[in-house]
Design a binder for these strands. Sequence first.
DNA 1: CTCGAAATGGAATAAACATTCCATGCGGGA
DNA 2: TCCCGCATGGAATGTTTATTCCATTTCGAG
Lengths: 276, 276
Amino acid sequence: MASETGAVPAPQSVEEFQERLRELGPSLPRRMRDCAGYLERNVDRIAVSTVAQLAEGAGVAPSAMMRFCQVLGFSGFSEMQRMFREAYSPGLPDYSTRLELLREEGRDSPSALLAEFIESGRSSLENLAGSIEPAALEAAVRVLTGAGVIHLAGLRRAFPVAAYLAYAFEKMQIPAMLHDQTGRLDHRHAMRAGDALLVVTFAPYTPETVAMAESAAAAGLPVVAITDRADGPFARPGILPLLVAEADFGAFRALSATLSLAIALAVSVGTRRNSA
Amino acid sequence: MASETGAVPAPQSVEEFQERLRELGPSLPRRMRDCAGYLERNVDRIAVSTVAQLAEGAGVAPSAMMRFCQVLGFSGFSEMQRMFREAYSPGLPDYSTRLELLREEGRDSPSALLAEFIESGRSSLENLAGSIEPAALEAAVRVLTGAGVIHLAGLRRAFPVAAYLAYAFEKMQIPAMLHDQTGRLDHRHAMRAGDALLVVTFAPYTPETVAMAESAAAAGLPVVAITDRADGPFARPGILPLLVAEADFGAFRALSATLSLAIALAVSVGTRRNSA
DNA sequence: CTCGAAATGGAATAAACATTCCATGCGGGA
DNA sequence: TCCCGCATGGAATGTTTATTCCATTTCGAG
């Protein structure tokens, strides 16, 4: 019985586990597929649940869940759970403890404030991971890769993002121009056919930035907009919105998610252009 | 037996739990103190361990660990563990699954790249939470709160941070000046007695920024430096370094931690100045 | 429609586990 | 020094949980 088809070697890590789930997902009988689906969507619960709880969540009998573990190559549920319990630490090992300690410095202390910004940054990042549309991102990269000069616009609190994009493009030797309104100079006529515009702006939108996006779109240039609302002034043809919901604390936000998105966009474009 | 001293109400959340641990830590018998100490340092393992495992880790008998749970106000270990297992979800519900999905778009896809930046951002934030010195932060806030004009310097990849600080201070109506080197104009003589300088720079340091910090320090102005290495040019009297280790992915970093620190600093200063 | 193989759910069994109880040890006060 | 009371560890117990087995159902091929 050693060389049977079912004698698979059993996943050694959470990554292998997820891979296995998806690779044999479709070829499985119905109840097994229910198990696979539920576990895939609730990997994080495996370490802290009983067979019965997971089975109920998946809508199957406990024995079905058991058999599923064995199909995956484990000797049983316990062995599988052991793997998850051991791999459990890296998540937030003493992260919340650290935050706790920072907060304890006092209600209005700088440390407590920092803890809040760290926390909102973290939740913004998680949110971004779940809400970004890979297809939209891919489309944006394609548009910018094909452009002659990439024009960058972003003012007020969006300015740091635009500035960082300008730095990154320059580093990668990609033609880009930052429209920073120095001297109130409006360089919109620097945008020529074949160029593209990348704007960054959040509600309430800065009029100058919106105007620039509209004039570019009217001229037929492709426009990519990093923004925070789907119903803003960028819901019109010719403009490709990339949504990022940044959690703010008080009147300010830490821009973690926005900058991550921006830099990923820039590096993708850079990689693709320089390898062509 | 309702009004006995030992009839404590039992913690309802992880925070309350930690608080309770610390408040009755010193007053406990030896073995109980061992339990408290070990649990405090391994809060994250409680949800995924058995009594026996925790007891062994703490170097006590299982029954001692049991009694400790009851001292805390729980009916037993199971009740305590239930609390931790339930409180466990909010952290990363399907966060790692989302990242996994993003990565699967393809090795060099924009989504996969974004996932990497999100991940390094998150780890930078966690790192910052653990490495920041509340005392140093407090000192920096005090220095900047007492200053006349706050001068801001940061070029190249540090420029977005300096720019965001300038935006935040302006919003809060705090006198600040961004030294952005437009027109190669060096405004260092705008720094007068009573002012302070806040610089942002990372290794390899931009010479202009370093020079500005040195000239300010030489003139006796207080200088706060947001930077990434303790052994840089800011290891000298008169300069207060705030260290932030930003994980970078490839040649770029997402600046999440740096910006969080910067904005926390700015808001702290703003709050304190405007309430005075 | 019929047969056979695979799948399924539920009940029975076995293992792991939490919890309690009690005998023993240890330290502090008289 | 002796005694009392609390603290402690280990064994016994009862409960929860995993696991296996088997009767029944479902599905697909002929």
